[in-house]
Design a protein around this nucleic acid. Structure first.
Length: 474
RNA sequence: GGAGAGGUGGCCGAGUGGUUUAAGGCGAUGGUCUUGAAAACCAUUGUACGGUCCUCCGUACCGCAGGUUCGAAUCCUGUCCUCUCCGCCA
């Protein structure tokens, strides 16, 4: 979520920033929000003033009713006088009369019953109107919130301004490209031939975009996950095991909802959803907490399955395991101060790149332009591995700084050292890495003419020292 | 899944529908005292939003959501969570 104060103060500047993104309709929300904000603040000021008067009168009523030292005749006279004052909207006066701090002149004897009934009638009427007022505030604030939830994050000033992903600027690739003396095959041929990917049975079990890994395929994946987690730990990330099913609030917190609601899988009978990424679970870990600056940065990593409906990309990348409904990923996540988040983004991205280098697969970094930033990132780098079989760059990691965008939604805050005035944290997330695509890259880069696959050096000790996946399978 | 008990500030823990606007304690912070510390004493002690933005004022929040009432931490309903026992179970 964006800072409402910023929108209020510089609506035109915010519009300019949003216009750089590929998000039609978001700019138009700003005017709606500015108007709602104005309306809601006016209502709040007005209603809360009335509520303050009413609270005071009710308290005074308590004093009048409960005053044992006061004769019933005087109470009745005061009730009647207070009733008259309220009718003239003199709430201060009425309050003083009721709590006994204002003297009243003695009049004729009054029947207490109608006097109090009249007073209660006045108070009830005030209450009814205030009730309506709070109803108005509630509906204005609900409208505001639903508008705000659809606004994307603003790009960092360093992000290149361009419309589409085609403009993402790749850096120089790193690592040696293989030279094959045969035609390298795509993984969707290598996998079934080796018996390590079973597309047909995956589809039989669950439908298209599902697959079964068997034997060395399953073991290779497990080895990769262990390797990734060990890298994360060496880099100072605390490993987490989180729930894979979370409340819908968590998806609002990490900003998948409301915009990308149709990309996740939900449970039928509960307001709970399967993780599309561990980011959702980790981003909400410190929800509604206020951390101390000395604890920061907090670095977490978790391996989870990720479930994605991929409705938006129906028909795309249908071959192989590049785009599937269920995959495994190790996610890196950082909670930092605003001052350090951009340095941490560089660190995190370099850590993801280092994993590619250790696997000895050619990779490159893309600096993502404004039009391809996505909804929640202020700045983003993608990392791609080269796959010689399908002859394309595969996105294996995406590292983002969301600044305070998620923090505002999930109430992630900290006290700067020596203060008690809380600020929002910055959140960063990055894949480190995602298995199916890294599996593709390994299979295609490490394939040999006979269809066997050499196991990358760094993975061998996770696989009992084996150095090659032979065509016979494991 | 069944039965019972319970959710109150950073923590513990009082709290008859009003007459102090959550008592008291612990912790924390600041101060007094001290060569220093401890002790003692004094003061401060949450979050969000709104108004003014120097500071203060106001509103809301006693798990959450409704309801009753002029007025709810307190009464009613629903719900979530925790604990104990029973059942089932990797």
């Amino acid at each position: 979520m964006l800072d409402i104060a910023l929108i209020r103060q510089k609506p035109d500047w915010v519009k300019e920033q949003i216009a750089k993104l590929n998000d039609e309709g978001a700019v138009a929300r700003i005017d709606i929000i500015v108007n709602l904000d104005k309306e809601r603040r006016e209502a709040r000021t007005r209603i809360e003033t009335a509520q303050a008067a009413r609270n005071k009168l009710n308290r005074a009523m308590g004093k009048l009713r409960g005053n044992r030292a006061m004769a019933d005749e005087e109470k009745a006279a005061r009730a009647q006088a207070a009733c008259r004052a309220i009718g003239e909207t003199d709430y201060e006066g009425a309050s003083g009369i009721m709590d006994g701090s204002t003297a009243i002149s003695a009049g004729e004897a009054i029947d207490p019953k109608p006097a109090f009934d009249g007073l209660i009638r006045e108070l009830r009427q005030m209450g009814d109107e205030i009730g309506k007022g709070f109803g108005l505030i509630e509906s204005l604030e609900a409208d505001m919130r639903s508008q705000m939830l659809w606004l994307p994050n603003l790009p960092h000033e360093s992000v290149p301004v361009a419309d589409s992903e085609n403009a993402n600027a790749p850096r120089q690739p790193v690592g040696a490209f293989r030279e094959f003396d045969f035609e390298p095959k795509p993984h969707w041929e290598l996998g079934p031939a080796l018996g390590i990917i079973d597309f047909e049975r995956g589809v039989k079990l669950s439908g298209s975009r599902y697959y079964v890994l068997a034997g060395w395929g399953a073991r290779l994946q497990r080895a990769l996950i262990s390797f990734f987690l060990d890298c994360a730990r060496a880099n100072g990330y605390t490993e987490l095991y989180t729930p894979y099913i979370v409340h819908s609030d968590m998806l609002y917190g990490s900003a998948q909802f409301p915009k990308f609601q149709d990309t996740v899988y939900g449970l039928a009978d509960e307001d709970k959803y399967l993780l599309p990424t561990a980011e959702v679970a980790i981003a909400n870990l410190h929800r509604d907490e206020i951390l101390e600056e000395i604890e920061l940065p907090l670095n977490y990593a978790a391996h989870t399955p990720c479930f994605r409906s991929e409705k938006a990309s129906a028909g795309r990348d249908v071959r192989g395991i590049k785009r599937v409904h269920q995959f495994e990923k190790v996610e890196m996540f950082k909670f930092t101060t605003p001052e350090t988040s951009y340095a941490e983004l560089e660190t995190m991205t370099e850590q993801a790149e280092a994993i590619c280098a250790e696997l000895d697969i050619p990779y490159r970094r893309l600096e993502i332009v404004t039009g391809d930033l996505g909804f929640s990132a202020s700045k983003k780098y993608d990392i791609e591995m080269w796959s010689p079989g399908c002859e394309e760059w595969l996105e294996v990691s995406s590292c983002s700084n969301c600044e305070t965008f998620q923090a505002r939604r999930a109430m992630l805050r900290y006290y700067p050292a020596g203060t008690r005035k809380s600020r929002y944290l910055h959140t960063l997330n990055g894949s480190g890495l995602a298995t199916p695509r890294v599996m593709i890259a390994i299979m295609e880069n490490y394939q040999r003419a006979d269809g066997s696959i050499v196991i990358p050096e760094v993975l061998r000790h996770y696989l009992g020292g084996a150095d090659v996946i032979e065509a016979a399978g494991g």
